[in-house]
């Protein structure tokens, strides 16, 4: 463990908590893409099946349980409890265009052709594009609530910090996982446009609104 990975995990945890609290306290999921949240629930489910097969550390196990629990709770709030506030018309990204190619790629390019490893690989590839429905929805509505931008910033920062973690681990441990690194680079690049808007607008106290 190094500080980049630790702060990456904490940023990820912050994003998950920020979103869950935002929906719970405002009793509304307006502006939130339920599709992205379903994809994240799939990401955690397929990646953390090793909870059933191996124990790495209390930190590892507890964080996985928190991620899975919060992501399912978020999906529940969006599609059940506060479904009246769900903006289905603007959450129209065709997720099958993500799941099918990612599934195919996971079967073709992986470290080991075993079920758990293919599911892990699928989860890594899916996570890199899981935010697209959310970014697409913001481009359609032309704006995002400030709390949603903080959620997105933490979500994007987490994998950016993981990239530094992988540089650190390669240099000090000789460890690298090309699949996670390539997917992590793609994932972080997808946030660049948002990062620019976040720094130039939200951090200056303005509302994030895209030229419609």
């Amino acid at each position: 463990m190094n500080i980049f990975r630790l702060f990456g995990d904490l940023s990820h945890l912050a994003a998950i908590i920020i979103l869950l609290l935002k929906i719970w306290k405002s009793r509304s999921c307006a502006g939130i893409s339920g599709k992205s949240q379903i994809l994240f629930a799939i990401v955690f489910t397929t990646r953390y099946l090793d909870l059933l097969t191996s124990f790495i550390s209390l930190y590892n196990t507890s964080m996985k349980m928190i991620y899975i629990g919060c992501s399912y709770a978020t999906v529940y709030l969006i599609y059940a409890k506060f479904r009246a506030t769900y903006d289905g018309n603007h959450d129209s990204f065709r997720v099958e265009f993500l799941i099918v190619p990612v599934g195919g790629l996971a079967v073709l390019i992986n470290h080991d052709f075993s079920l758990l490893e293919i599911l892990w690989t699928f989860s890594i590839y899916l996570e890199s594009v899981a935010i697209l429905p959310q970014l697409f929805m913001i481009s359609k509505t032309g704006e995002a609530e400030t709390i949603t931008t903080h959620y997105l910033f933490c979500q994007g920062l987490y994998r950016a910090l993981y990239l530094i973690n992988w540089i650190w681990r390669f240099y000090f441990e000789g460890f690298f996982d090309m699949i996670a690194i390539v997917a992590g680079v793609v994932q972080t690049i997808l946030y660049c446009d948002f990062f620019y808007l976040y720094v130039t607008k939200v951090l200056k106290g303005k509302k994030l609104s895209l030229p419609a």
Partner: peptide, 10 residues
Amino acid sequence: GMSVDEHDEL
């Protein structure tokens, strides 16, 4: 090596 027998990252 490339084959990561156990993924220790979240």
